[in-house]
Write a protein that binds this DNA or RNA. Structure first.
Length: 673
RNA sequence: GCGCUCGUAGCUCAGCAGGAUAGAGCAUCGGUUUCCUAAACCGAAGGUCAGAGGUUCGAGUCCUCUCGGGCGCGCCA
């Protein structure tokens, strides 16, 4: 079915054109206040301005010229020139029956012109657990993908994981430490070092002392690990890597700790002026070389990115780590009910690595990439730095390494050329806005993007703690997504336990999960994505207000009615099957009905601006209207002439809530709670 | 310095190409249960939409300036 606003829009715009001769949109909106009717057309006033006439008079003429009697009661002109519209009972009933007939899609049409849409979201990093910083991208992106999917577009999800770049070296180094800790020192020294560094962060002298010890041990272990030639690692590290695939599950938690250690060390070392021995290729063989300690991970990264036979072992280890990380992410996606599937939707930075040189050569040959201060840069128009100079989009560092700008260019080109994307939506936090502006500008300069293609950066703000500062654990660490979800589920479990203690344990656990995870997701969706928002378990798990539990509760109440029907000799299927007329006498019935027929519009609004909160706002209005209806209008005990209509309202409300929550937001509904 | 973004009730937030008297929830005060889940519903109170100009028949929304918060601005992602 066509959207009601669209139907009215077309008819009224025609009338405006007929009367005034201008092509002005009718601007049909749901009425600001129910007392003005159901919808209002605001476009006449603008049209009147164009033809320089009195808006009210023009509105009267438009009303006289238009024929919408099959949809609305006779319209009224109000205020400076609003046209107020009230649906006829017959039309409203017909819409509800239309939704009833097409129960799967609730009567909502697919897009007339399906597009291929790439949605880039989530993007976790390798060798790290997902943390709260990944939550918003993951679920907002997922909602956008689901919306486009439902509308009949060809959606290609892309999980652009961080599996290349500096982490590469860090992970290998973490593995190395893990290996030495186990094989040589027989103790997880990295854990002790981690603690020591943490507790001496303020004490520079002590910190330096610790780092010197770490460096000395590191050097010693490195020099000790060779069989034939310098630094061949064939004595200790090599054999360890060879059997890594058989022990990866066991050592995984330790790898993460060692990785944390390497990360922290990387930060701390800056400015300490400590050096470390590593190797570099001489004429023909490896030679020792001393480099600044803080450069070590970058050095390893650079070596490994060169690849080749020398590094095959490490590359394989890398692959293992990557798959292991993705397993963890998949678990989270499963818990979050997110539609990303590995490996189908995974194309990370490493995927584009082979074509990065070509990206640079191509841009060079087009004269777009030029050398500046040793780095290859594109200078898109209109971007300046603090000194008013053209701002570079750096695609190759002076040491020859590539950056995320290069990878993003390669990925964009791939999505346009190979995936045939007509729309590419990037879901990342707002801090990257400048990067994407420049990325899009550079791609356009390169001629990769024609006018039919839309590139979109969907931004979002930060998650804050109760203190208004970035959301962290009590000790200041990042909050792991897994822990966050577990706590939400645990809290929800407590509520279920007090409210409904008699349910079977298994069912209580399922409810707790649906409510807990749903609450976390919903509270994020319900905020305007651009604002930073304050994370609060108490608020998101409240039964009052715009929350997942409130919505789930409304759904559960309807399901409860359905369960009770049999006991009261009501055959719902039979009553709905033959339904033809819908006498909606009670105000609460009508209010609910009028909201039900607006679901399509809510979806369209949410999609147009990639704003899930338009959808949650609608669902909340709907659930509220249902709760009022539920209080005011008995269903099962209603008079026989009223009951089928009420059963239909219940059924459509349940379907709409379930569709909105479960299909579009990925939030589970429950039969009981 | 330039750019992006935000500033709406005591608190947390909505407000969908400018539209009628700016809305929720929490907190506060009051009411509703022999009846399908009261995890609910109804009502009261609460606002100079940061401030000042401007455009417009009409501005929380658009423009200019000011104040305040967050973020970004050459080799991290």
């Amino acid at each position: 079915m066509k959207k009601i606003t669209e139907l009215l829009e077309t008819r009224i715009a025609e009338a405006i054109n007929e009367v005034s001769g201008v092509d002005a949109p009718a601007l049909v909106r749901p009425a600001a206040d129910a007392k003005f009717g159901d919808y209002q057309a605001n476009g006449v006033m603008a049209a009147a301005k164009q033809v320089k006439t009195h808006p009210r008079q023009l509105a009267e003429k438009v009303v006289a010229a238009m024929d919408i009697s099959d949809i609305c009661q006779p319209p009224e002109v109000a205020g400076p020139g609003f046209i107020n519209l009230r649906l006829t009972d017959g039309f409203l009933a017909e819409r509800l029956l239309g939704m009833h007939r097409d129960a799967e899609r609730l009567g909502i049409d697919r897009a007339e012109m399906p597009q291929t849409v790439v949605v880039d979201y989530s993007g976790p990093n390798i060798a790290k657990q997902m943390h709260v910083g990944h939550l918003r991208s993951t679920i907002i992106g997922d909602c956008i993908a689901r919306l486009y999917d439902f509308s009949g577009h060809n959606v290609i999800r892309q999980n652009h994981i961080g599996d290349w770049g500096t982490q590469f070296g860090k992970v290998i180094l973490a593995l190395w430490h893990l290996c030495m800790a186990r094989k040589v020192h027989k103790s997880p020294y990295y854990e002790d070092d981690l603690k020591a560094i943490d507790s001496n962060k303020e004490n520079t002298n002590k910190l330096y002392e610790i780092c010197v010890q770490i460096r000395n041990r590191h050097n010693e272990d490195y020099l000790n690990d060779q069989v034939e030639e310098f630094g061949d690692a064939n004595k200790i590290f090599g054999p360890f890597l060879d059997k890594l695939d058989t022990i990866i599950d066991d050592v995984w938690p330790d790898i993460l700790k060692a990785y944390q250690f390497v990360n922290l060390l990387d930060e701390i070392l800056i400015g300490m002026d400590l050096s470390i021995i590593t190797r570099q290729k001489g004429d023909d063989k490896w030679e020792p070389v001393e480099i600044p300690y803080e450069n070590l991970t970058r050095k390893i990264t650079a070596m490994l990115q060169i690849g080749g036979q020398d590094n095959q072992q490490e590359v394989d280890a890398w692959g293992l780590i990557r798959e292991k990380t993705m397993q963890h992410c998949e678990d989270i996606y499963h818990d979050l009910n997110v539609t990303l599937e590995h490996p189908r939707d995974t194309r990370g930075e490493s995927y584009y690595n082979p074509v990065l040189p070509d990206v640079v050569t191509t841009l060079k040959s087009k004269g777009l990439a030029v050398e500046s201060e040793g780095a290859m840069c594109v200078f898109p128009e209109g971007f300046t730095n603090k000194d008013g100079q053209p701002l570079p989009f750096i695609i190759q560092k002076s040491d020859g390494a590539f950056l995320y700008a290069t990878t993003d260019l390669a990925a964009l080109r791939f999505r346009l050329d190979e995936l045939k994307a007509e729309r590419v939506i990037y879901v990342t936090d707002a801090r990257q806005a400048l990067h994407f502006q420049m990325l899009f500008a550079a791609a356009k300069m390169a001629g990769w993007v024609d006018e039919r293609i839309t590139l979109e950066h969907v931004t979002f703000g930060a998650m804050l703690g109760a203190d208004g500062k970035p959301f962290k654990t009590r000790t200041g660490g990042t909050v792991k997504l897994k822990d966050l979800l577990d706590e939400a589920i645990e809290r929800a479990k407590g509520v279920v336990e007090t409210k409904n203690p008699d349910l079977p344990a298994e069912q209580k656990a399922a409810i707790a999960k649906a409510v807990g995870v749903g609450a976390v997701k919903y509270s994020d969706y319900a905020n305007n994505r651009n604002s930073d928002y304050v994370f609060s378990f108490d608020k998101m798990l409240a039964m009052d207000g715009n929350t997942a539990p409130y919505m789930q509760y409304a759904y559960a109440r309807i399901k409860s009615i359905e369960r009770k029907a049999a006991g009261k000799d009501v055959d719902i299927a039979k009553e709905l099957d033959g339904i033809a007329a819908l006498p909606l006498a009670e105000p609460a019935e009508k209010d609910l009905a009028k909201l039900l027929v607006r679901y399509d519009q809510a979806i369209a609004a949410a999609m147009a601006e990639c704003r899930p909160n338009y959808l949650t706002g609608y669902l909340y209005d709907l659930a509220q209207a249902f709760s009022r209806f539920y209080t005011a209008c008995p269903v099962l005990t209603a008079e026989p002439q009223h009951r089928p209509a009420r059963l239909l309202l219940c059924d459509l409300t349940a379907r709409t809530i379930r569709h909105g929550l479960s299909e579009l937001l990925g939030i589970e509904v429950v039969e009981q709670m």
